[in-house]
Amino acid sequence: MDILVVAGMLGAGKTSVIIQLLEPLSAGGRKVAIIENEIGSVGIDGEVLNKGGLQIRELAGGCVCCTLKTGMIDTLKALQAEVNPDIVVIEPTGIADPEYILLSVDGVMGLTVGTSKVVVVIDAERFLKLKTMFERPLKNQMETADIVLINKVDTIPLQDLRSVEDSIRSTFKYKGKIVHVRGDTGDGISSVPKEIGL
C-alpha cells in the first residue's frame, strides 16, 4: 500500500487536486482510498468526495500529524483489511507537518506501507500574500515535498507566477520540481503520479 500525502495551506485547492489525481492514480485498475482530515468537528470535503462513490474515511476534530495520529493508523489498518487499496491519499489539515504523518506510519506493526510521497499544493493567487503568515507550516511542508503544484495558475499573470516560483525556491529553499496546475480543470495534474514515481 503506497501513501500519498497531499498537503498545502487552507484554500490552496487540495481537495480539487485530489479529485483530479484520482483518474491517473487509478490507472491500471489500482484501488485508491482517501483519508480526509478536516479542521472542525464536521466533515465538508468528505461529503464532496463521497459523491464520487470513493472509499473515504474522515478524521475530523484534530490533526493526523499529532492528536489523531493513532486514529490515522487505525484507519489505515482498517482500510488495509477491508479495502486493501493500492494507494491511500491522505489530505491533512492546512498546517499539518507531512513528515510527522510519514514518520508515524513508518514501521507500524500490521501495516504494510510501500512508497510514501508528498505533494504540496500552493495557491498561486494568495501565496505571496500569505507566505509570511504561514512560513513555519509552509517550511515544514516544503521540506518534505516530492513535488510542488502551483494551483489556480489562471488567476495571476505569468510574471507573478514566476515571482511565486522564485519565492518558493528562495524563501523555502525548495529544489525539487514545480508544476503549474489547475484543480478545477485538471490541467497539469495527470502526469503528477508518474513524476513522483507512483
Binding site: I39, S41, C63, C66, D97, Y100
Partner: peptide, 16 residues
C-alpha cells in the same frame, strides 16, 4: 472549535 497549545502540534483543532 478549540485549538491546541502543544508546542509541537501544528493543528489548531484539539478541542478535547
Amino acid at each position: 472549535e478549540g485549538i491546541c497549545n502543544d508546542p509541537k502540534c501544528s493543528d489548531p483543532d484539539c478541542q478535547r
